[in-house]
Write a protein that binds this DNA or RNA. Structure first.
Lengths: 197, 197
DNA sequence: ATCGTTAATTATCTTTTGTTAATATTTTCA
DNA sequence: TGAAAATATTAACAAAAGATAATTAACGAT
């Protein structure tokens, strides 16, 4: 029962891997729980954390000079999450990573697995895929900003990730859409009243 | 004289490469000129073009259903440009790539160099760096949308790329900032009058 | 269940943007 | 150079967003 999540993880990572690669990776893997509200990675952290989320949801945000929090991304069960700044760009994280629900992850320290990854063509390819996925997501996101109005961005989110919408407080969603919570509220009521016509 | 551009190119690509790698790549490299206004890559194109821009400027844009053009990115001399959809995601390009000035590039077909790249650890690393750079740029761009107002985005562009601003018609810049040309014009006049106080 | 906190909605007002159209300015090139 | 075309600016109005504050709703802890 409990094992299912780990199985999912191993399936997702190792599906195309040889046993040799998998074996070399496993010693560095450790499961971990994060309570709802708890911060998983602090701003300024340099640890190269890389994790598979088996349950729950994590929000990446940054703190503006005036104290406002701006949500940059959301990740949930079945997805990978990485401290982008430290793992990818080798610098202290500008972001916080906070669990919005009780969350279970399976994490590795990228510093430790890097040699293994570098020496395995298959793992290197996986890393490449990971990068490509992130890039694809980022570019898609940029398109929503240049192509869509705030309302259209919200509708798109509503259509594509209705479940996520219910799990994340609107104040976090709004800043991710580039608008204020008040404005999101108005958009919602606008949509609701339009539906009634 | 004319050679300088090619030299710049080889320096930028091969600075860390062994001679063997460089030698294997050179046969696939071909210079090409694109007239101002000419479209370099058409929407729907599947050719995996990858090019170093030695002179000029290229605009990536897409055509909305209503016929509007939305500028997605600009690239100029000293930078690489790739048909993102075809090279990275292996699908037909949703974008047009148009030279805004008389442009000179040095291009390769990624299909042809891929085996070479795959067999060279150094070239593979370069590819990785390229991806990381694209990702970094994309993420920075996303941040400008969630953190800054349209006016602030314009000011940022003005401060960081003043030269580019003078080389690209405002109507193209505006859609890249997620606003209309009219709105950009107002922002400009607002800034101008604010400076006069 | 209730109090206290946090989040969401609503209201009011100001500012900005979108839209469309008219006008002015630049660019292009014949 | 001068006319035509392409860009940019300005105007006028409607629609949307930001800011702030007040009100309502939802949530959590005891």
């Amino acid at each position: 029962m409990e094992q299912q999540k780990e199985i999912d993880f191993y399936l997702s990572v190792f599906k195309d891997l040889g046993i040799a690669d998998a074996d070399r990776l496993i010693p560095f893997v450790k499961p971990r729980k994060i309570d709802a509200g708890e911060i998983y990675i602090q701003e300024g952290a340099t640890g190269k954390k890389l994790a598979y989320i088996s349950r729950g949801l994590i929000r990446t945000y940054l703190l503006k000079a005036n104290g406002d929090e701006i949500t940059l991304m959301l990740r949930w069960e079945g997805q990978f999450i990485a401290s982008v700044d430290s793992v990818l760009f080798n610098r202290a994280s500008r972001f916080f990573y906070q669990a919005l629900e009780d969350t279970e992850i399976i994490e590795v320290d990228y510093d430790k697995i890097q040699p293994v990854v570098n020496n395995s063509p298959l793992l290197s390819l996986s890393r490449n895929d990971f990068l490509l996925n992130m890039l694809a997501e980022a570019m898609e996101r940029i398109e929503t900003f240049v192509l869509l109005s705030p309302e259209e961005r919200y509708v798109k989110l509503l259509e594509e990730k209705p479940d996520i919408l219910n799990r994340v407080p609107g104040k976090y969603l709004s800043t991710m859409l580039g608008i204020t919570p008040v404005s999101l509220s108005r958009i919602r009521s606008r949509i609701a009243s339009a539906g009634k016509l």
